[in-house]
């Protein structure tokens, strides 16, 4: 597999292949679990119901009719693909760090897309900030991965983070319930709760992947500085002391812990990663949570 899309080189593609193999191993074990409740034309028998005019008479159980003299219709569980919604935070705060959080998020999103496409799931990729900025129509099949790459490559950081507005806007359409993977730093002025609650409200299974830059954890600044918020451009003069740095670190930890607890409370998937953490390990961590591959 080769690609010319910027940011996704040969090395990256090799890692995706590896992940695809791993995902197949996971999916082989869990295939029986991916079954929709909706009854349809699947192979697995589910139930009977009385025949009503208009039903497909091919599903009438003639043997039961002979025994009971009643027309019963055989119902089968319909096998369905899994809608996967990959929300990539493209607010300006994601442009922070080396590599940037957005760059890292794109790679994670690409990997998850690839795995989803390989499992014939319907993958929808969305970039959001204070609204839905770009959206890739649902894709299925590995051969669509290049579209995903192109989409991800076209994402550029802009705007402030208002996840609730973005998720509400996205979900108000006739969306199927699915797996919503949110890849973000969750630095939302409104807090992370409104956005995640919105996805829960629309009955999506939510996985929160918190991407944190090393610079977020260990800011390298001392003395008199003027902090500029990359999203709002608001400035604040600060005298940075070791005590303040430590207080900030504690606050970062507290923020992540709050997010984790929130996800635990509402049975949401949660993975926290730092941008210098190998993304394939991250994807496997997501797999281990069992939400991505059922």
């Amino acid at each position: 597999m080769t690609t010319a899309i910027a940011g996704f080189d040969e090395e990256f593609m090799r890692k995706l292949e590896y992940l695809a193999l791993v995902s197949k191993r996971f999916s082989g074990q869990l295939k029986a679990e991916r079954r929709a409740r909706k009854l349809g034309s699947g192979l697995e028998f589910a139930d009977y119901r009385g025949y009503v005019p208009g039903d497909d008479f091919r599903y009438i159980d003639w043997k039961t009719y002979l025994r009971l003299d009643r027309l019963l219709l055989r119902l089968y569980e319909e096998e369905q693909d899994l809608p996967i919604y990959l929300f990539v935070d493209s607010s300006r705060s994601m442009a922070y760090g080396r590599p940037t959080k957005l760059e890292y998020a794109k790679r994670v999103a690409a990997a998850l897309c690839y795995v989803g496409l390989a499992n014939l799931d319907r993958v929808t990729a969305i970039s959001y900030a204070d609204g839905v900025q770009m959206q890739l129509s649902p894709q299925r099949g590995k051969n669509q991965i290049f579209r995903v790459f192109q989409f991800l490559s076209d994402i550029h950081p802009s705007g402030k983070t208002h996840a609730r507005d973005a998720f509400r806007f996205f979900s108000t359409g006739s969306r199927r319930h699915g797996l919503a993977v949110v890849i973000s730093d969750f630095f939302d002025p409104d807090g992370f709760e409104p956005g995640l609650n919105t996805l829960r409200y629309y009955k999506h299974d939510v996985v929160a992947i918190q991407v944190v830059a090393r610079e977020d954890l260990e800011p390298e600044m001392r003395g008199q500085v003027e902090l500029i918020d990359s999203e709002s451009s608001a400035a604040r003069e600060v005298s940075v002391t070791p005590e303040l740095i430590q207080a900030y670190r504690d606050e970062v930890q507290r923020f992540s812990e709050d997010l984790r607890r929130h996800c635990l409370k509402y049975q949401l998937g949660y993975v926290r990663t730092v941008t210098d953490f190998p993304f394939e390990d991250l994807v496997l961590e997501v797999f281990r949570q069992g939400r991505f591959l059922k």
Partner: peptide, 13 residues
Amino acid sequence: HRRVIVGSALLWN
């Protein structure tokens, strides 16, 4: 002061 751009000043604030 030296200007330092941070991703988000949310936690700093």
